[in-house]
Simulated scan of single mutants.
Amino acid sequence: MSEENDGIGAGTVLLSFLAGAAVGVGAALLLAPKSGEELRGDIKDLADDAVSKIKEYASDAQEKIRASYEDGKELVIEKKNIISSAIEAGKQAMEREREKQEQV
């Protein structure tokens, strides 16, 4: 579960790539010999596609964050139970040793 992340995440790289592609396509549309109406329609379509993809990636990111949070929460509870058991065992062992010392 605990992977080291020494650089930029894959999601960030993908989002940056898509943003760059959108800018490139937008520039190509602006420089293409089309009528104003066609150009505005192409730009609107491009913007709509970009917005829908960004929403999709944001939704995916939320799901991954939610899943990671739940996994982390379960792990904390599990470790807390282990530590509580170890503390209780230590208390019992200390009590047994104290009773042995009192008998001597």
Rank of each mutant, 00 (worst) to 15 (best):
K80T: 09
G11N: 14
G7C: 11
T12L: 05
Q101A: 13
E38L: 04
Q62A: 06
K53Y: 14
R96M: 05
F17G: 10
Q101F: 08
I83L: 10
P33I: 05
K64R: 15
K44A: 09
Q101P: 07
Q92Y: 02
K64S: 14
A10M: 10
L14A: 11
L31H: 07
I82Y: 08
E70K: 08
D60S: 12
D49V: 14
I77Y: 08
A27M: 04
E95D: 04
S68N: 15
K64I: 14
A28N: 07
M94V: 01
A22L: 02
I77Q: 09
E95R: 05
V51E: 14
E4G: 03
I82E: 13
G11H: 08
D42V: 01
K91S: 04
A86W: 01
V51Y: 13
L46P: 00
K80A: 11
M1G: 12
R96P: 05
D42P: 00
G24T: 03
S2H: 07
R98Q: 00
A89D: 01
I43R: 01
D60Q: 08
V25S: 13
A28R: 07
Q62K: 12
L14T: 09
Y69M: 13
L18F: 13
M1Q: 03
M1R: 06
D42R: 04
G24K: 02
A67D: 12
L30C: 07
Y57W: 05
G26F: 03
E97W: 02
E4V: 11
A58I: 08
E102W: 00
S85G: 03
A47Y: 05
K80S: 07
V104M: 07
P33W: 09
L46V: 00
K53E: 09
E4I: 12
V76P: 08
E63N: 09
K55Q: 08
Q62E: 06
D60Y: 11
E97V: 13
K64E: 15
A28L: 12
G41D: 04
V13Q: 10
S35T: 09
K73T: 13
Q101S: 14
S84R: 06
Q101V: 04
A21G: 13
K100M: 00
V76N: 10
K91D: 07
N81Y: 05
A22R: 11
A86S: 04
L30R: 07
A27H: 07
E37M: 02
S35K: 09
A32T: 08
L39D: 03
L46Y: 00
A47V: 03
E78R: 15
A58S: 07
E88V: 02
